[in-house]
């Protein structure tokens, strides 16, 4: 136990606390800017079982903030790469890898197997999904989100406390990611570390858990404040009664004249509406290319413009399409609003 000696010395931990940590099961949804530092501190503290969930691959633009990953991890599954790195950090910990997205179908079942959920996601759909599944499974979850130099932090559904829907009852289409806005690596580092601290307090039953409060941090302004949240019973009851209320973020395209081809996976949001929008994920292009019109301009898009560029190469070289145009800036540049 000498590896945990420095924390066992604390009155809030002690030997009993270390046993609690060893018996604890924590699910990290999204192993990115928030999830990486959180996972490192939770593994370091000796949390017994950590679930690592992410369906994404490591990109070179992740490395400045997603501190678990090495240059040699680029192109690899985040969940798998994170597990391999963390196992070297603490071989006492049992890691479970979920190389898949959290969905309406799997959420409750997976969350049921853990004591606490740590939200490292970058979109509203999954935040509402975690929220609803945690209400149904009766588990607390530690929320954090970032916009440029600012962060929000809270613990939801803790001992029957307020939930995410008590703060933000209505979802918004404005799913603005760190990729789109830019972020300094330290900000998710700070927020993810604070999330890990909340998880440790919950597991240890020590101190004051940030439940019923929303902490707002502005890293650039070196300012923070805490807002008190009240429970919206009707929002929680709705979920208890009717189950998970999935948030689908749809939107309109500015241009309704031309054909558009969405090469993103089916779960990626927002989803543009319209008769001239085709959705064919990258993996299905070779089996479904005949659905794409070849006699008029078709604008191909994904989240950022990178995958759509590859898609056009494939469709051009393998199937002779010459009418495809790439949407350089990704979906955010072509939607209305």
């Amino acid at each position: 136990m000498s590896r945990y000696d420095r924390q066992i010395k604390l009155q809030e931990v002690g030997l009993d606390g270390q046993v609690k940590l060893r018996n604890a099961k924590v699910l990290i949804v999204g192993v990115g800017g928030l999830g990486c530092p959180a996972a490192m501190y939770l593994a370091g503290a000796g949390v017994g079982k950590i679930g690592l969930m992410d369906h994404d691959m490591v990109d070179v633009s992740n490395l400045h903030r997603q501190v678990l990953f090495l240059e040699s991890d680029v192109g690899r599954s985040k969940a798998v790469a994170a597990k391999q790195r963390l196992e070297k950090q603490n071989s006492d910990v049992q890691f479970s890898v979920y190389d898949e997205p959290l969905t309406v179908d799997n959420a409750e079942n997976i969350i049921q197997q853990y004591d606490v959920v740590l939200d490292g996601t970058d979109n509203f759909e999954t935040k509402y999904l975690i929220n609803d599944a945690c209400i149904l499974a009766n588990k607390p979850w530690v929320f954090a989100s970032i916009y440029k130099n600012e962060g929000q932090l809270s613990v939801f559904n803790y001992k029957n406390g307020p939930t995410y829907r008590c703060v933000f009852p209505k979802s918004t289409r404005q799913n603005i990611s760190c990729e789109a806005t830019g972020v300094l690596g330290v900000l998710p580092g700070i927020l993810g570390t604070l999330q890990a601290a909340e998880v440790l307090k919950i597991v240890l039953g020590a101190g004051e858990v940030l439940s019923g409060k929303l902490k707002l941090i502005n890293m650039m302004q070196a300012s923070e404040q805490t807002i008190k949240i009240n429970k919206r019973h009707e929002e929680i009851e709705k979920i208890r009664k009717h189950g998970i209320a999935p948030v689908y973020i749809d939107c309109d395209l500015k241009d309704k004249e031309h054909w558009y081809l969405d090469v993103r996976e089916v779960y990626e949001q927002p989803k543009p509406k319209g008769k001239k929008v085709l959705s064919i994920p990258m993996g299905d292009l070779t089996s479904r290319y005949q659905e794409i019109p070849n006699n008029q301009d078709v604008f191909v898009f994904c989240q950022s413009g990178k995958r759509s560029k590859n898609a056009i190469e494939i469709l051009k070289n393998e199937f002779g399409f010459h009418n495809l145009k790439n949407v350089e800036g990704g979906i955010e540049t072509i939607i209305d609003g």
Partner: peptide, 8 residues
Amino acid sequence: LLPPFAGG
């Protein structure tokens, strides 16, 4: 005035 944040 508090907007929701999505980034992570």
